[in-house]
Design a protein around this nucleic acid. Structure first.
Lengths: 143, 143
DNA sequence: AGATTTAAGGATCTTTTTATCCTTTTTAAA
DNA sequence: TTTAAAAAGGATAAAAAGATCCTTAAATCT
């Protein structure tokens, strides 16, 4: 469904969000340990999320990553867009460049439904809500 | 959503199915033209589908690809499984190896819904039904 | 039998994705 | 002000996916 980059990115951002609700900031080392991802690769992904103003990075001792209060309202769809683009929402299931209601591929209307439900889910799920669920439910981010 | 191989494969198999309903068999050259895919690469994909007994290949002059009558009942999910495996149905949205209702990732229950609707769609859509829709609706397989 | 047409299959190349390494920059603390 | 801790960023490597080429095998027609 998503690329590895996007999977790591989502896990990272969810972990940072959850820690942010506890007033902790977290280092790259901690993140990659806690989400079980390759550290240097995760660094690249976090750079992208930082440049796109989704997470905030702080250099130097006691630095790390955190999410600013108003950014806790960021939706998962924004993270996915930054890391994988939005072809998952807009693209044709059979890979056709031109495929819409007017000149649809044979599966167009069946795919639209699924893509829309995915899009809705991602667009309606904020980092804050996932973080809160996590704190309450003890869901996991590694293994 | 799917790999390129799987996109080409689905388009190819749908095209062959549609032609089969018209009692035509089609050559690799025709297929790759009609679905707008790289010919040699499409050949590899069709070999896989042939070995997995989804399409039938006939060598020699007037040869080509066709689908046997009873195989027109093949579901899209079988084609996807052959070409992309079934991680799209069973895998975790965040890429965790172990993620299920017992130890779920933070998005597990939201993803289950979407994956299930995708799975249902693919498991309930036969080659025959897509081919028939195509013949009636003039949907497209290229561009 | 020989020539031709078509798929099968092996080898290889290219591009993209995934991943690592090393140096530089920033910041805080001693 | 030196040292250490952390992220940023450039260069490169490894693996996977996508794509091509060429030879072989099978089938049909002459």
């Amino acid at each position: 469904m998503f690329s590895k980059s996007c999977e790591y990115g989502l896990r990272a951002v969810i972990f940072i969000a959850q820690q942010t609700t506890q007033n902790n900031k977290v280092s790259l080392g901690t993140i990659s340990e806690e989400i079980n991802s390759p550290q240097a690769f995760t660094a690249k992904i976090l750079q992208k999320l930082t440049r796109n103003d989704i997470v905030k990075s702080i250099k130097g001792p006691y630095g790390g990553f955190t999410i600013e209060k108003e950014k806790m309202n960021t939706k998962l769809s924004e993270v996915v867009s930054v890391l994988d683009g939005d072809s998952i929402y807009t693209g044709c299931g059979l890979g056709l460049k031109q495929c819409d209601a007017n000149s649809p591929c044979p599966l167009h209307f069946k795919f639209v439904e699924i893509r829309d439900s995915l899009r809705n889910m991602l667009e309606n799920t904020s980092l804050k809500s996932v973080a809160d669920d996590m704190t309450a439910d003890l869901t996991i981010l590694k293994r």
